[in-house]
């Protein structure tokens, strides 16, 4: 298992720091060009030690959200506004993917037109057929 942190022979964490640097550049891009960045942490040699370091460095922000779609997804803004932890879980609660998104609002939080349409149909069905609203999207 991972060595204890006080081990003086322990080499410096070699993944957390470059990621932190990437986040910094991502925030800068978001501010200046509005360009968003997503970092897929499951594709990097990234372990609990790295995550602890990163969470400590970024801190906790103001927003926390939980999405229930195809299992749970947790969205947590970090202490750096615009930087979000996004973790996807399956129905059994196992983590499937872990991302850092640098954006104003993570896409998973936004309502999707297809889902809205389904909602509209549901409301149409409930309120009766006299004044069915057909969305522009559907007309197309």
């Amino acid at each position: 298992m991972t060595a204890s942190a006080d081990d003086d022979q322990q080499p410096p964490r070699f993944n957390a720091k470059p990621i932190l640097n990437e986040i910094r550049h991502g925030v800068d891009r978001l501010l200046n060009d509005g360009q968003t960045t997503t970092i897929d942490l499951s594709r990097l040699p990234f372990d609990a030690e790295d995550e602890r370091y990163l969470r400590e460095a970024l801190g906790d922000g103001e927003v926390y959200a939980s999405v229930n779609a195809l299992g749970e997804s947790k969205v947590q803004e970090t202490g750096v506004a615009g930087v979000w932890w996004v973790t996807h879980f399956d129905a059994a609660g196992a983590a499937l993917g872990k991302y850092i998104e640098i954006t104003t609002v993570p896409g998973i939080l936004k309502s999707q037109p297809e889902d809205m349409l389904r909602g509209l149909h549901m409301l149409n069905a409930r309120l009766g057929a006299d004044q069915t609203i057909t969305s522009v999207q559907e007309q197309q």
Partner: peptide
């Protein structure tokens, strides 16, 4: 009965699974 949100989550995870960049 999986929502569009669920589909997007699925796509993100599939992208990840194929070892492609999140973009």
């Amino acid at each position: 009965g999986i929502s569009r949100r669920g589909f997007l989550k699925f796509c993100a995870l599939t992208t990840s699974m194929m070892a492609l960049p999140p973009s």
